[in-house]
Design a protein around this nucleic acid. Structure first.
Lengths: 214, 214
DNA sequence: ACCTGAACACCGTTCAAGT
DNA sequence: ACCTGAACACCGTTCAAGT
């Protein structure tokens, strides 16, 4: 178990030049393959695209999650940065909503990614995806705290359920090829958390049933 | 394209005795395999369990969905029956909630079933799963109409989004091995649809932020 | 009419052999 | 130190040959 840190983030022991090159080729090939065929893209195909043997892929990335995590961590960092930006520019609950929408867009980058991320949400360390997932969740916690302290959202909401719900909404949009479904489902979830009454104006007036018969 | 109706539901032309027997063996084996290994269980394994050749499985069930639909349709009928029962025994919006919970339990029968059902929700006829899915959605529509006419739920909710949300919640519970997550996420969704204010009592009092500092 | 299983084209993963 | 690719154990799906 040597503490082999990722080569792109200041490696402890630098890779041999050819190894370094293969590593980068693999990451680029994986990004392309995941984009085209989703997070379950064939690892053999990725190795083929990178022009390396399948054994080389396994040497650098012992699991699919390790490869996925490497390809995704730049995006995850951007989502965290977006949270900090929204905190200073946007009112509490709409900052949270905008951030969740950004996260859902990120999750929809690759087909099947919502599944991997939802799993990593609970595995807590078992997968390399847990690190980016944890960072994002912490960023979300900060925005949720702010929205709850402002009184706009209920105190009993947990960031875990909200993030899980956002992943589920992204997954649903993926399954139904209906990109807007993610936003609609997120709206349902957030509306359930507001402390004020039902936000969309429509319903208030119809307290005692519409005229059409049962 | 002969209109080959399912053997168990009054067949047009009855199957030969051995074929009939194999058909039933396959359905039983599939049920066991789906329960054990999820909706993606190996078809070869199912044929093996049934003691028939893989070709026989494909003859009776040209696609995985056809087999899945056959194994599931009794349960789907039960969910529809449950809707009719709840309509006559339970107040509008809690009838809908109880019914959605029953449907989520059904969807969680097999791992990976939520995915198949969510896809069938939009394919509209392409998969054999669409028939049971459509029946369930219609039953849900009836309960939703009732809840909206009573004024308890907003008028702008669609049964499509609610059922999709329930599937997504079931999926989330599956991914996180947290059976209760489905119920919690469903609660978020339904709370978002109520016409009265936030239902859980907690938050009302904290309109202007809790004392702990940002 | 129905059944069988070999055949084909794919996977993921490991590991002995190379440089 | 690193790379390669054959080998193994699986899949899903089709189809010629059987009864």
């Amino acid at each position: 178990m040597q503490p082999r840190t990722s080569p792109s983030t200041g490696s402890t022991r630098p890779l041999r030049a050819d190894a370094r090159r293969n590593y980068d080729l693999l990451v680029a090939a994986a990004d392309a393959a995941f984009t085209e065929h989703g997070a379950d893209a064939s690892l053999e195909d990725i190795a083929r695209r990178a022009g390396v043997g399948i054994g080389t892929l396994y040497r650098h990335f012992p699991t699919r999650e390790a490869l996925l995590a490497k390809v995704l961590d730049a995006g995850a960092a951007a989502i965290v940065a977006r949270a900090n930006e929204l905190r200073t520019t946007t009112p509490p609950s709409s900052a949270l909503v905008s951030w969740l929408e950004a996260m859902m867009g990120y999750v929809m980058t690759y087909d099947g990614l919502a599944k991997s991320l939802a799993a990593s949400l609970v595995e807590s360390g078992k997968s390399e995806l847990c690190a980016p997932c944890k960072l994002m969740t912490e960023a979300g916690q900060m925005l949720l705290d702010r929205a709850q302290q402002s009184g706009e959202l209920r105190q009993d909401a947990t960031i875990h359920d909200i993030v899980l719900g956002a992943h589920a909404a992204a997954w649903a949009a993926e399954q139904t090829d209906d990109a807007d479904a993610a936003r609609r489902l997120l709206t349902l979830i957030i509306d359930g958390l507001r402390t004020d009454a039902a936000p969309r104006a429509v319903a208030r007036a119809v307290r005692r049933g519409a005229p059409r018969r049962s």
